[in-house]
Nucleic acid binder design. Structure first.
Length: 313
DNA sequence: CTTCTTGTTACTGA
DNA sequence: ATCAGTAACAAGAA
């Protein structure tokens, strides 16, 4: 999608009253956040914590502040869409961004283009209307947690609970654990629509609605197809598509509709590569004549090309 | 007012 | 015991 078409896409959507402004931080977005934060946070000491709204803080603000103050950030990890911050002494901070969460890192500057705002991208002072927590670091920099919808959460856990939570997730794609054998095995003895399987975090970690649709399109497979009738060739193609789509999305630093920003205030660029997500009613970019359709599959709105993602029986 | 958005979990029914 | 499917929840937009 070139720049001109992209503009039209936004205009059409707004005219039709669809809400295109929300993003979903899925694996590629959360991984982008992690990669941006590691070089600027690891080794830094948290000198002060400001909690502007207690709602996203699980298990009490007191415990939250006490657990993090004067700790040093040792390591930032990710499982699926969950960030795991190791602050040493067996204490871990879990951060889930859910739909509209942002982590913004600022040193010196007090505004960020595209911070949460009801009126679109523009310069927003930090902390913004939707900043709930600020971590002040020993070098004068700050990390802001913003979340318009307040669906995201911040949770302090010990090593045992962290391990228990991490263990609930299935294999992480793009790691050695996610092999073709593993994928074939989780497809066995199941008969759910393939899209529901891709969204099941206990089987594959990190895929959400955007990338589930994009992966199915890339594989040329109807997202509602039951896994039991997939051919071996289709299963292998799906496995390959999971890797290639997620890798490409990370390369372009994720997808931004409106609210997703990396910690340095940058939008993701994968929007330009979306083939089906939020393209319903538009021409298929792969085949001649297909019009992207929309259907509810596994309780989720799904987009696909009815011509090149055939329903096989 | 209703309906839609998402990731996650609790629950139901098979 | 295991799996499929759905409701519920958070908060805001239209």
């Amino acid at each position: 999608m070139n720049r001109c078409k992209q503009k039209l896409f936004y205009a059409d959507k707004e005219k039709n009253g669809f809400n295109v402004r929300f993003f979903m931080p899925e694996l590629p977005e959360v991984e982008t956040v992690r990669r941006d934060l590691v070089p600027v946070l690891v080794g830094k000491k948290i000198t002060k914590i400001t909690v502007l709204h207690a709602a996203p803080v699980k298990d009490g603000v007191k415990k939250f502040i006490k657990s993090l103050q004067f700790k040093t950030i040792h390591h930032i990890d990710r499982i699926g869409k969950l960030l795991v911050v190791d602050v040493g002494e067996g204490v871990f901070l879990l951060i889930h961004l859910k739909m509209t969460g942002q982590l913004i890192y600022r040193k010196g500057a007090t505004t960020v283009e595209g911070g949460h705002s009801l009126s679109g991208f523009k310069d927003v002072p930090m902390p913004s209307t939707f900043t709930w927590v600020v971590w002040h670091l020993n070098d004068g920099s700050d990390l802001y947690f913003n979340d318009m919808r307040k669906f995201g959460y911040l949770k302090i856990v010990d090593a045992q609970e962290k391990d228990r939570i991490v263990a609930r997730y299935g294999a992480e794609p793009l790691t050695k654990k996610f092999t073709l054998d593993y994928f074939l095995k989780i497809l066995e003895k199941r008969n759910t629509p393939i899209k529901s399987l891709l969204l099941n975090q206990t089987l594959v970690a990190g895929i959400g609605n955007i990338y589930a649709d994009e992966i199915c399109f890339d594989a040329g497979i109807f997202p509602g197809i039951r896994v039991a009738i997939l051919t071996m060739k289709q299963k292998k193609k799906l496995f390959q598509s999971i890797g290639s789509i997620l890798k490409k999305a990370i390369k372009y630093k994720g997808t931004t509709f409106k609210n997703y920003l990396s910690p340095h205030g940058k939008k993701g660029n994968f929007l330009d590569f979306l083939q089906v997500y939020q393209r319903e009613g538009k021409k298929c970019l792969r085949c001649d004549g297909g019009i992207i359709a929309q259907k509810r599959i596994g309780g989720r709105n799904s987009r696909y090309c009815p011509l090149c993602q055939k329903v096989l029986h």
